[in-house]
Design a protein around this nucleic acid. Sequence first.
DNA 1: CGTAACCTTGATTAAGATCAATTCTCGTGG
DNA 2: CCACGAGAATTGATCTTAATCAAGGTTACG
Lengths: 249, 249
Amino acid sequence: MSHLHEIKNLKKILLFSDLSDSELETLRSFTHLKKFNKGEILFFETEPYQGLYCLLDGCVKLYKISKEGREHIVHIIHPGNTFAEVPIFENNENVIKDNTFYPVNAMSIEDFTEVLIVSAKPFLELLKDTPDLCFKLLSTLSKRLKKLNSHIENISLLDVKKRLAKYIIAEFEKSVSQTHLEQNQKHLFLKEPDSIELNISKYDLASHLGTITETLSRTLKKFQEEGLIDVQGKSIIIRNLKKLKKCTE
Amino acid sequence: MSHLHEIKNLKKILLFSDLSDSELETLRSFTHLKKFNKGEILFFETEPYQGLYCLLDGCVKLYKISKEGREHIVHIIHPGNTFAEVPIFENNENVIKDNTFYPVNAMSIEDFTEVLIVSAKPFLELLKDTPDLCFKLLSTLSKRLKKLNSHIENISLLDVKKRLAKYIIAEFEKSVSQTHLEQNQKHLFLKEPDSIELNISKYDLASHLGTITETLSRTLKKFQEEGLIDVQGKSIIIRNLKKLKKCTE
DNA sequence: CGTAACCTTGATTAAGATCAATTCTCGTGG
DNA sequence: CCACGAGAATTGATCTTAATCAAGGTTACG
């Protein structure tokens, strides 16, 4: 792997987008690439902490698991984003100790998942010398906090129906805004206008919504019967967005 | 209010404990004190954001509320800690806009609650010039993330019994470590050895555990019948810590 | 000592988990 | 190219947890 290619990889990560070339070079020196296939574990929460993860390609789920084996997905990570930043600041002395662990479990949920692992100790040094990076990280963590906050709100105050409706709408709005950004829209004529493509398995979706596959299946069916959506495998066609939005209230 | 007293107040806040006198003086210049009685609202999540809150005295609950009026307490804040930091980093341009809101609702749950409110814009300036403060804030947010993470784990994967047992044990261990720190332990002879004092109402405890008062009451009773604890008003005497710990598994 | 807020208790209900049995889908090898 | 088999998804029946509804009881405080 050439240095140039490694630097190019680092530039894909939002957190590092404002770094200078020399800072990127420093960062590169204590960063290494790792690849995973679907279903492979990046780390367990019982493992000693190595460092910050940056997702280049593929998809990763961060999840907790109960004694009985029930999973709850706290976060789904997409390329360009970082995760496992928190343990860096575990110890007041700004030193990563051996008894520092990951805050969650992480599994690749796509083939050809590629991550960069940034060693914690030297990263902490770089962070001290780079106020801009500090600021960017503050902003990253803030966004995460906001997301977790709203996740808590969802699972503690809303029922499964509302949570699912919210998810579908959020994914739809995400895909709409992405579509607007794309220049070449030829392929759009091929697919249904108001539809989303589930990029995760129904099992994972259920466990992200704080439920199980059976309940998810039934709820999707209910929405279909009420004429709100049509479900065809991994794609959901939105038939009545207005009514669907009412479901979230 | 004298400047000196205001500075002394700022020093009570963990986030600011490492600041120099001149930095504290700067901070003081855009900070103001506010007092609340039990039940009074500090802010609603629908309000435009003013700035960072620092709790000097009393107790504050941060909570979400459903359309039906059901509350869920995300966080209970004790003196020395800060809250409502997140919106500071809402906008990439590092500017607080009028359309930035609080992430949660905040209510005082004790009389004589005192907070310092730090204006967002000048605080952001101070933060840019003070890398140490940046670092400290990173550490604060990280701890918050970890807490929220474990909160999600609790409410999504554990039942009410387990959540309550965990809460009691955590409070007990907190009180034990605090007791060890205290020099004068005379008063200890007056109270039960293995007990905790609920410093919040049962309503608030229920809504923090993601349940309602009725269920909390029944669960406490169940624990009492099983000989794990004794409940006397706001104090819980731990009769069998070992068995109680087994309840969390 | 009266009253309002807080807490407990009981009966009922509902949401969603669990258990069990198919059915569907899709990748792989013959 | 088709058939097979495993994993994924659906469906139905049942059960469990905890919410809801409805009274009472307790406590604290003016």
